[in-house]
């Protein structure tokens, strides 16, 4: 009885994970994309719960929720198509990519089907949370702590990289926006455009004064 429900849940979650993972690259909106990815992660988290990895499953929920939230925020800050109102298609080499993706899937599936893996399931009386905790703060403490140090280094690096002032002055000094078309004139910001318009207007006014 319980087994059937586990199976049904598993297949449902697997379908959701793969389907929403695919939809990530098929939607116009970046926000929708990041939340679709979140759904994919949540579905995998549920599968982990089914596999008795209780801590990992729930931790994945909140880790990924924060991550995707940040992602969505970034998307909207930078991307030209924030709310997904305008259809767009920003891909390159789609066919090669699709082919490679499919090849990797086929290869890994073949390994899964034909490979021989030991059938050695976790013992029923295992307390996964406790064993994970003992491992993290016992034998593998060094690994765990180095992950912590790596995260700390990331935090520092992130702040340095993204801050306005680099070591040698403003980070965007002398920069110029890229062309709209390859090799074309650079895209101007609205402020620059405004300035340009005003200059033009002044010139015209000067001209009119001159004519009079």
């Amino acid at each position: 009885m319980v087994g059937i429900w586990t199976d049904i849940t598993f297949y449902l979650c697997a379908a959701i994970a793969v389907f929403s993972g695919w939809r990530v690259f098929r939607t116009d909106s970046m926000v929708r994309a990041s939340f679709l990815l979140l759904i994919s992660f949540l579905a995998v988290g549920v599968i982990m719960l089914l596999l008795a990895a209780v801590y990992l499953g729930t931790a994945l929920f909140f880790m990924m929720a924060v991550e995707m939230m940040v992602m969505a925020l970034f998307m909207v800050m930078f991307m030209m198509n924030p709310a997904g109102l305008n259809p767009m298609n920003m891909v390159h080499q789609p066919w090669v990519a699709a082919l490679l993706g499919f090849a990797v899937f086929t290869g890994l599936s073949l390994v899964a089907v034909y490979g021989e893996f030991p059938a050695n399931p976790a013992p029923a009386d295992l307390d996964p949370v406790r064993s994970l905790g003992r491992e993290l703060l016992g034998d593998s403490m060094l690994v765990f702590e180095s992950a912590g140090i790596a995260l700390l280094a990331t935090m520092i690096g992130t702040v340095v990289l993204s801050s306005h002032r680099g070591r040698y002055g403003p980070a965007n000094e002398g920069s110029e926006p890229p062309g709209l078309d390859p090799g074309g004139p650079p895209a101007k910001s609205a402020a620059q455009k405004q300035q340009q318009r005003e200059e033009q207007k002044e010139q015209e006014e000067d001209k009119q004064d001159h004519d009079q």
Binding site: V76, M80, N81, P82, H164
Partner: peptide
């Protein structure tokens, strides 16, 4: 092109420099 036209009656969001640290962001 990417920026052309007024899709759905809405112009594409244009980047403007942030007043506080100069990063160009959507306004």
């Amino acid at each position: 092109g990417m920026m052309g036209g007024k899709p759905y009656g809405r112009p594409m969001a244009m980047m403007e420099a942030d007043l506080r640290d100069g990063l160009m962001l959507d306004a």
